[in-house]
Design a protein around this nucleic acid. Sequence first.
DNA 1: CGTTAACATTGATATGTGTCAATCTAATCA
DNA 2: TGATTAGATTGACACATATCAATGTTAACG
Lengths: 113, 113
Amino acid sequence: MMEDMSTMPIQACCPPLLASPLAADEAEQLAAGFKVLSDPARLQLLSLIAAQSDGACTCDLTEPVALAQPTVSHHLKVLLAAGLVTRERQAQYSYYRVNPDRVAVLREALETS
Amino acid sequence: MMEDMSTMPIQACCPPLLASPLAADEAEQLAAGFKVLSDPARLQLLSLIAAQSDGACTCDLTEPVALAQPTVSHHLKVLLAAGLVTRERQAQYSYYRVNPDRVAVLREALETS
DNA sequence: CGTTAACATTGATATGTGTCAATCTAATCA
DNA sequence: TGATTAGATTGACACATATCAATGTTAACG
């Protein structure tokens, strides 16, 4: 049985896009990663989470992005599934942190070597 | 009158995502750029175009991505509208080239400064 | 206990978009 | 001129997804 690609973390997978032709499966991997970044709410969330070095809870994030709480939870779930953030639960709170290594995978794919 | 954001070229717009909180309009700009990269066919096309330093025509691209010609034309139009590629017409042919500066805008937004 | 708070999940809806067949346009060639 | 070729456009369809109201879950607090 195959896993659903869209819920899998972004792998260190590919040589830079512009350096050598991309195989179909590499293209799918990378595209799934960029799709996670293709929503303005998720970019703002990533940015807000990065600004809180000790972790950001959902309650800190809902108001600045001006979206309902279930929508924010949905976007955080997408970021988490991609591995772009980590989640740590404490009591009722969920603390999210950016995983810079996963961001780097996507950045490096855009390198003009 | 406002232009449709999705058909506008990617601007040099934003400080790195992880360095400072992103404003809503900056997030929309960047998200539109990453959305263009969020399709595996478009990533493969970009990669194939980059591999042909003297420009790639549509006819060179249809077979390797295994899609119908109108679909390839559609994706090329999206890449062109975003400014990620340029198009030069010669006779019946359209030659596409990568615009590395626009790719760099997106790469730099992912920098961990 | 019951209440409240943080967060996740479900379900519904509206919108966006990737795909291709059919068609159109424009240029080459016989 | 007619035939062919490259490529763009149109229209239709299937599928994905962003959003929120309602509900569920878990934990603190009285």
